[in-house]
Design a protein around this nucleic acid. Sequence first.
DNA 1: GGTCGCCCTGAAACCGGTTTCTGTGAGGCA
DNA 2: TGCCTCACAGAAACCGGTTTCAGGGCGACC
Lengths: 343, 343
Amino acid sequence: MGNSRMTVREIARLAGVSVATVSRVSNGTGQVSEEMRRRVLEAIEKHGYRPDHLGRALAAGRHGALGLVFPGLSGPYFTELIQGFESEAVGSRASVHILCTHLRSDADDQVLEMGRRVDGVAVMGGTISEEALLRLAGMVPVVVVAGKGPGDIPSVRADNAGSMLALTRHLLADHDLRDLAFVGNPAGSPDVSERWAAFRGAHHDLGIEPPNEPVAVSMQQADGLLAAEQLLGGDAPRPAGVVCANDEIALGVLVGALGRGLSVPQDLVITGFDDVPAAALVTPSLTTVRQPVRELTAEAARLILRAANQPGNTPAGSLVLPTELVLRRSCGCSAPPTGGTGR
Amino acid sequence: MGNSRMTVREIARLAGVSVATVSRVSNGTGQVSEEMRRRVLEAIEKHGYRPDHLGRALAAGRHGALGLVFPGLSGPYFTELIQGFESEAVGSRASVHILCTHLRSDADDQVLEMGRRVDGVAVMGGTISEEALLRLAGMVPVVVVAGKGPGDIPSVRADNAGSMLALTRHLLADHDLRDLAFVGNPAGSPDVSERWAAFRGAHHDLGIEPPNEPVAVSMQQADGLLAAEQLLGGDAPRPAGVVCANDEIALGVLVGALGRGLSVPQDLVITGFDDVPAAALVTPSLTTVRQPVRELTAEAARLILRAANQPGNTPAGSLVLPTELVLRRSCGCSAPPTGGTGR
DNA sequence: GGTCGCCCTGAAACCGGTTTCTGTGAGGCA
DNA sequence: TGCCTCACAGAAACCGGTTTCAGGGCGACC
């Protein structure tokens, strides 16, 4: 059995035909007589020929690949994003390139380099400079995920503000809570920034003074545990409720609170964001906001593929995917009126 | 400013030189006079020329890319794997392709297709058929991560058996516990299979009858909560300890136990595997096994790059990275003798 | 029987780079 | 002055495909 040494010309020689005929047969394009087709297929089969991707890509002027750019990777949220993107891409026979900038100084260069290896790129909001984003958009279709891009670069994001507004209002008005803490770093991502703003906005709407500063931590469960230590460990009066930027943090705070002997929601109300599978299963079940994480990147991939297939490379408009407030027990609601079983 | 329309020949024409000279200047190879270099650099700068990756890759006969194949993605373990691989790859100016087979029927084909787009592939153990693995190894260097490959395909894995043996022995002998449950699906991955085998092995070594069946669930926190429901929710006598296949499951079991009013470790001992950051921060802190997750894929990437750079494509041997038992409080130890601060 | 048209085939150009190979001019040395 | 060497530039081949274009052969129709 032959291997990657085989080329079109070699197969053509062995089959006694021209390279054009081999190409036509292997792609199923054009008209080829039965006799020719048989001879070519025989040679292909016998020598295990598979067309080289590079040659094909060069001739076609497209890479057959999509890029996905992250600041860094942590936890289930990001694996969901990757899977949403990957599923959509492989469905179109495109491979997926991943780049983590890790806030490296040469992040912009690396992203631009990626731009010359793929047919389009999805960039997580807040990952690279606006200038790099614009230059990137000058070479391939670009979509910003979970954030907004400069100029007319399209974006796909979740409705952070609407549900966070409703959630905070629910805590303040329906449960009559005061002194809520917000855990999450607004400077860390556009998502958290929007959630923090909506959290404060709900306070203002009701004429209540919001906290001035969030508990600025990262987005993992360990950070929630650290936040619990900070909020519950000292002598300072503990807040009545903790609104977390995502479920991972909330689960960390929950574990920290339970570990300190506190009752949730009696002693402390806790809410999250994302509606991860565990949110419905913990005791008490976690009040949170459901957002379609996989859909974010799946939609981005669709936008990119569409733009890449059109000659004009038109980027298309932006999308805001709906979110849903999921009331469970950790906020103080007794009978979950909706979404109790999680996704 | 020009864009991707620029080619070597166009730059050569504009600078009044040959394409060979442009290539030499842009790569810094060969001898070029100062005058020529200046003219070429001027044209490159003026028109924003960047050499096309496909053309370059085709000429060089290499893709400048590495592949990483997963069955699926879930949680922090996988993001660590990706980051370990990615860091090592970008250090060598290689891009990273990701493929999730999701146990699709055409997984083997997709992996082989990836084999023609990259210079080497790391495959998570148990992801594709042995036949596909061997065929893949016939086209590019391949390394199996967290598992063993057929034939002489190199692999990188952690010492699951050693530490799981020590951990189980610690529970059985030092804490004199009986009736331990194992949570995790041995059929799900080679890692879990090895851990389950070592768990049983420790029982046999001490002449104790191990459980016949594990609580076969997946590897996420939600699965740990389901396992807690199964183990603690019914009327059956609860086990004395729960040995979990990873920390995520263990955290789920912990939350489930705390939510049921149980005290850990007094009422129930719980152990994990991985030593995620949260393990050191929960109350009680989690006894677990530390394994160098990022190093697994980083080492795999190094092996692949080395093989890809050598003309003979020699695969090199296999590696077993050391693990470390981390005793904290959830097993019943009072003063953590080691590793109390997590990584 | 001649001409038109269709089906099929292969030579060659092309995608965008790198690299070899040839050749020219300048400078050094006898 | 003549010869040899060396530095440097460019033409062309090459990587492995796809696609255009021209032409040959054959059937159909007039």
